[in-house]
């Protein structure tokens, strides 16, 4: 890898991690929501560095374009203007660090002690091969995903509706 691509790589690693930290620690929820945008975008760039071009595009389209918009709508619809400034953290945050550090060390030790086989990474466009996989080997999960999305769509609309109509029944 050239020096320039190294600089770009570490820049986006830093962007991802710092944005994720802002999501967790910023006391204003709307700042958290916008920091989430940069975290998702940073992960999309990391997908590009892993030569997962289709996945990076899907990440930008679905996460940044869809989920994040939903989250920001959720923030606006559930927060009063006066509550936007209230500190959002509970009191157990230092207590929460103990299992967190233990869990992180545990995961890293498991990862570090297993001798992973390594293959020579190939660099090819992935979109066509993912499409073929989705319609052959992953056909059942693919169809299940479409049913899941339909159920989530109908269920979310049903849940988010006002309940006044029920009272009239």
């Amino acid at each position: 890898m050239t020096l320039l691509s190294q600089i770009v790589f570490w820049f986006f690693v830093a962007l991802t991690v710092v944005s994720a930290a802002v999501v967790v620690f910023h006391k204003r929820i709307i700042y958290s929501a916008f920091a989430l945008l940069f975290a998702f975008f940073g992960v999309a760039v990391l997908y590009l560095f892993l030569h997962a071009d289709f996945l990076a595009a899907a990440q930008v389209l679905i996460y940044v374009g869809g989920i994040l918009t939903l989250v920001i709508f959720g923030v606006f619809l559930t927060a009063k203007i006066t509550t936007l400034d209230i500190p959002q953290l509970t009191h157990q945050r230092f207590l929460a660090l103990i299992p967190l550090v233990l869990l992180g060390l545990g995961i890293f030790l498991v990862f570090y002690t297993v001798p992973w086989p390594s293959v020579q990474p190939e660099i090819t466009p992935t979109t066509q091969r993912i499409g073929e996989l989705l319609l052959t080997r992953y056909l059942v999960p693919f169809e299940l995903a479409s049913v899941l999305l339909l159920a989530a769509l109908v269920g979310a609309m049903r849940l988010a509706r006002h309940f006044r109509q029920q009272e009239g029944d």
């Binding site: 999501v23 967790v24 959720g74 559930t78 927060a79 953290l89 157990q92 992180g104 990862f111």
Partner: peptide, 26 residues
């Protein structure tokens, strides 16, 4: 791992349900 732990921290320490959802997304 860092992203996972940050998301878990958001789930454990945040009060607002939307923030918990952001942790799940992380």
């Amino acid at each position: 791992i860092v992203l996972f732990l940050l998301g878990l921290l958001a789930m454990m320490t945040r009060k607002n349900a939307i923030s918990v959802l952001m942790g799940v997304e992380l």
